[in-house]
Each structure stands twice: as structure tokens, then as C-alpha cells.
Amino acid sequence: MNSAQLTVKPGAVALMALMAATRFHHFGSPFALPDASLAVFFLAGLWLGGRYLFALLLAEAGLIDYLAIAQLGVSDYCISAAYLFLVPTYAAMWWGGKWCRRFAAVNFNTLAQQAVALVSATSLAYLISNGSFYWLSGKFAGGNWTGFLESFAKYYPSYLQYTAIYAVTVFALVALGKNVLGQRATQHTH
């Protein structure tokens, strides 16, 4: 009789904790960090993969949003028909990360390609999430392309900046950790 075994990956737990710690305030505040969800989906796609983890991260995001609104008094301003477009938004980040898996070596060229993938995935995610919110939420009466471009100019830079800062920081911490662990392993074998 075979029993299914659930394996808990520390990286998945760490990324889920990062999302849980930051998702309550999209832009951050003096008391809270900005939302790291986009970087979490990118890094999960890069390092972990698996459709079950993608679904688990989506469920976590939805649960956090529900708790923030229902229990903590966070505004429900962003909840609209466009909320469903967070699924393809996060899928864009996930697939951007998965695409970066092809780079086994860590060197300037591969890091540059990963950076381009991160910017591209984040840009597509922005167009999906903010575009759907602008056009479908009902919050922008008489929405037009000029208004959308003004919104783009206002919010896109921070959207990209926060995602890049989280992704680069976590990537660097993981690389540093691997380096330290590799040095310790080498010292123990000599």
C-alpha cells in the first residue's frame, strides 16, 4: 500500500511567509512593507515550480485579502470584477520565473537575461492587473486611454521597483546562503 507523502519545501514556506508579512498594504506604509506577492510568484516559478504551489499561493493571496478586509478593516477599494485578473497576473510572474530556469550558471549574461525576464514579466503583470482594474472596476467613470496612461505613469514605476527590490534581495540572500553552505561543506571534507 503506497501512501502519498507531503514534502514541505523550506523555500516555499519562506516565500509564503514573505507574502503573508507584506500583502496587507499594497504600497506599504510607515509601519508595513510594500506587497511582495509579484516577486514571490516569480521566485516560486524560478526555484520551485509545481501547479499545486501556484494554486496554494493563489489561495493564500485570496485568504490574506479576505482577512485584511473582513477582519482588519483594510479598504475593499481594489475588489471588483477585475480581481479575477490577478490569476493571469500572477501566472505571468510564475511563467517568467519558470522561463529563467534554463540558466544554470550564474554569471553576468544569465543574470542580465533574468533581469530582463523579471522586468518583462512584471510589465505584463502590470498591464493585466492595472489594465483590468482601470477598465473593469467601475472606479474610473468615462475611462479613456489618456487616463490609463496617466495611471500607468503614476503607478508602474513603484510596481516595478518593489518587485525588483524583493526579487533581487531574496535572490542575493539565497545565493549568499548557498555560498556559505558550500564553503562549510568544503571545510568539513578537508
Rank of each mutant, 00 (worst) to 15 (best):
Y77H: 14
I79Q: 03
I79R: 08
S80T: 11
S80A: 11
A81I: 14
A81N: 04
Y83W: 15
L84M: 08
L86D: 04
V87T: 09
V87W: 07
T89Q: 06
T89R: 08
T89F: 09
W94F: 06
W94K: 01
W94C: 01
W94M: 03
W95V: 04
W95K: 08
W95D: 03
W95I: 10
G96K: 01
G96R: 03
G96W: 01
G97Q: 03
K98F: 04
K98R: 10
K98L: 07
R101Y: 02
R101G: 11
R101A: 07
R102P: 00
F103N: 00
A104S: 08
A104Y: 07
A105G: 07
V106C: 12
N107E: 03
F108D: 02
F108K: 14
N109D: 04
L111H: 13
A112V: 14
A112M: 13
Q113P: 01
Q113S: 06
Q114F: 07
Q114R: 14
Q114L: 09
Q114M: 14
A115M: 07
V116C: 08
V116D: 06
A117W: 02
A117Y: 01
V119L: 13
V119C: 15
S120N: 09
S120Q: 09
A121G: 04
A121W: 05
A121P: 09
A121M: 12
T122P: 02
S123W: 02
S123Q: 01
Y126H: 12
Y126C: 09
Y126L: 13
L127H: 11
F133V: 08
W135K: 03
W135D: 01
L136Q: 05
L136R: 07
S137N: 03
G138M: 10
G138W: 10
K139N: 02
F140L: 06
A141R: 08
G143F: 11
N144V: 13
W145F: 15
T146L: 10
T146E: 13
G147A: 05
F148S: 08
F148K: 04
F148Y: 14
F148C: 07
L149A: 14
E150H: 13
S151M: 14
S151L: 15
F152L: 11
F152V: 08
A153W: 13
A153N: 07
Y155D: 04
Y155E: 08
Y156Q: 02
Y156D: 00
P157R: 08
P157Y: 08
P157H: 05
P157S: 03
S158W: 12
S158K: 10
S158M: 12
Y159H: 09
Y159G: 00
Y159D: 02
Q161E: 05
Q161M: 15
Q161W: 13
T163A: 13
Y166N: 00
Y166S: 06
A167M: 09
V168M: 06
T169A: 15
T169V: 15
V170I: 10
V170L: 09
V170Q: 01
F171D: 00
A172D: 00
A172Y: 11
V174L: 12
A175F: 14
L176D: 01
L176N: 03
G177H: 00
G177P: 00
K178I: 04
K178C: 07
L181I: 14
L181E: 04
G182W: 08
Q187P: 02
H188N: 09
H188F: 11
T189V: 14
